[in-house]
Amino acid sequence: MDNVSAHPGERNRIDLTRQTDVQFWCRVFDVSMDQLRDAVHHAGHQAEEVERYLRQKNIHAV
């Protein structure tokens, strides 16, 4: 996963209502739109929490 702080706009908050944010965070986390929405639903809108959730999910999937 890329450096989360690279996002120039909302810093570390993921706004699912903004298509540019969704596209950006999908690229950062290398996930689909559905995976991003699921992660935000479970972890909240803070990028650090979403990243933590995605990492945990990947670990459990292995």
Rank of each mutant, 00 (worst) to 15 (best):
residue 1 M to Q: 06
residue 1 M to F: 12
residue 1 M to C: 14
residue 1 M to W: 09
residue 1 M to E: 04
residue 2 D to L: 15
residue 3 N to M: 05
residue 4 V to D: 15
residue 7 H to T: 05
residue 7 H to Y: 08
residue 8 P to G: 10
residue 8 P to T: 15
residue 8 P to N: 13
residue 8 P to F: 09
residue 9 G to Q: 14
residue 9 G to L: 15
residue 10 E to K: 11
residue 12 N to I: 03
residue 12 N to S: 11
residue 13 R to H: 05
residue 13 R to P: 02
residue 13 R to W: 03
residue 14 I to N: 04
residue 14 I to V: 14
residue 16 L to W: 04
residue 16 L to Q: 09
residue 16 L to C: 01
residue 17 T to A: 07
residue 18 R to S: 05
residue 18 R to G: 03
residue 18 R to K: 13
residue 19 Q to I: 09
residue 19 Q to E: 03
residue 19 Q to G: 00
residue 20 T to Q: 09
residue 20 T to P: 04
residue 24 F to W: 13
residue 24 F to H: 11
residue 24 F to M: 05
residue 24 F to T: 08
residue 25 W to C: 01
residue 26 C to D: 01
residue 27 R to W: 00
residue 28 V to T: 02
residue 28 V to K: 06
residue 29 F to I: 13
residue 29 F to K: 11
residue 30 D to L: 03
residue 31 V to I: 07
residue 31 V to R: 02
residue 32 S to D: 01
residue 32 S to I: 07
residue 32 S to L: 08
residue 33 M to T: 08
residue 34 D to C: 01
residue 34 D to L: 07
residue 35 Q to H: 08
residue 35 Q to R: 10
residue 35 Q to S: 00
residue 35 Q to I: 06
residue 35 Q to D: 09
residue 35 Q to E: 15
residue 36 L to T: 07
residue 37 R to N: 12
residue 37 R to V: 12
residue 38 D to T: 13
residue 39 A to P: 01
residue 39 A to T: 03
residue 39 A to Q: 00
residue 40 V to P: 00
residue 40 V to Q: 00
residue 41 H to I: 01
residue 42 H to E: 12
residue 42 H to Y: 12
residue 43 A to Y: 03
residue 43 A to C: 07
residue 44 G to I: 09
residue 44 G to V: 04
residue 44 G to K: 04
residue 45 H to C: 08
residue 46 Q to D: 12
residue 46 Q to C: 14
residue 47 A to R: 02
residue 48 E to Q: 14
residue 48 E to W: 03
residue 49 E to F: 10
residue 49 E to C: 12
residue 50 V to Q: 03
residue 50 V to K: 05
residue 50 V to R: 01
residue 51 E to S: 08
residue 52 R to Q: 10
residue 53 Y to F: 14
residue 55 R to C: 11
residue 56 Q to N: 10
residue 57 K to P: 00
residue 57 K to R: 13
residue 57 K to V: 15
residue 58 N to P: 00
residue 58 N to V: 14
residue 61 A to K: 10
residue 61 A to E: 14
residue 61 A to D: 12
residue 61 A to C: 09
residue 62 V to K: 11
residue 62 V to G: 07
